[in-house]
Design a protein around this nucleic acid. Structure first.
Lengths: 110, 110
DNA sequence: ATTTATTATCGCAATATTACGATATTGAGT
DNA sequence: ACTCAATATCGTAATATTGCGATAATAAAT
């Protein structure tokens, strides 16, 4: 237990859930906002602006890289992170597709 | 540890993260899809269609109720769940607002 | 009143997540 | 070669999540 029973769900459901799970942490949202709003994107910036240990930030960056919403390139001894625009838009689309589904249920009360 | 350091982030970040976290589980997405696509919305339906124990489904329903994206009304001995349209739209808006932010970062490579 | 059906809750085990200090690793500058 | 700076990884502790069986709780049907 403690493990999600992925076999029970569709690939789409698992995929979207995984994306939303990664996005579902304030530190990772904060990181995305900072990357999006900064011309220069250097990992250390996050350490300075977000009050979490460097190791913790690094871990969160790893998760964001895993779903490919950000990408990092090495520039000298620094890491340069940026938004992966293509994936960013893709994620937005997938989420909107989910929310655009028709709601056929008669509302219970309101 | 194991606890998210919410004090470090803005209310908006914490709020959105919390919503995304709840949505970030395939069972809960599956439940939402089923509620949305069914005229009659009875909890037991999920137990029959999703291969998870009744206790587990009940727990997931509780999480979804907590963010108010669904609401349940008792009708006899059955529970009737439905989408909370207002909140559903609100969630969609909040997510889209996040994704609509300008991305100022020069892309690293692509 | 007793049974049955439906759902919620409790308690627990297994696993995952969050966070951090300590320690690599790697590249730049000296 | 040595040091410093930037980042990643390891190991670990605390807590959270997932899932389930067992057990309440409640309402309908008999």
């Amino acid at each position: 237990m403690g493990t999600t029973k992925t076999q029970v769900f569709t690939d789409k459901q698992n995929e979207l859930a995984n994306i939303l799970k990664v996005l579902g942490h304030p530190a990772r949202l904060a990181i995305l906002e900072q990357i999006a709003n900064q011309d220069e994107c250097i990992c250390n910036d996050f350490v300075l602006k977000i009050d979490l240990a460097q190791a913790t930030i690094s871990q969160h960056l790893k998760e964001l890289k895993k779903i490919e919403i950000i990408q990092g390139t090495i520039s000298g001894k620094k890491m340069s992170y940026c938004i992966n625009q293509k994936k960013w838009n893709e994620v937005q689309t997938i989420i909107n597709q989910f929310f655009k589904q028709d709601i056929k249920t008669k509302s219970c009360s309101n």
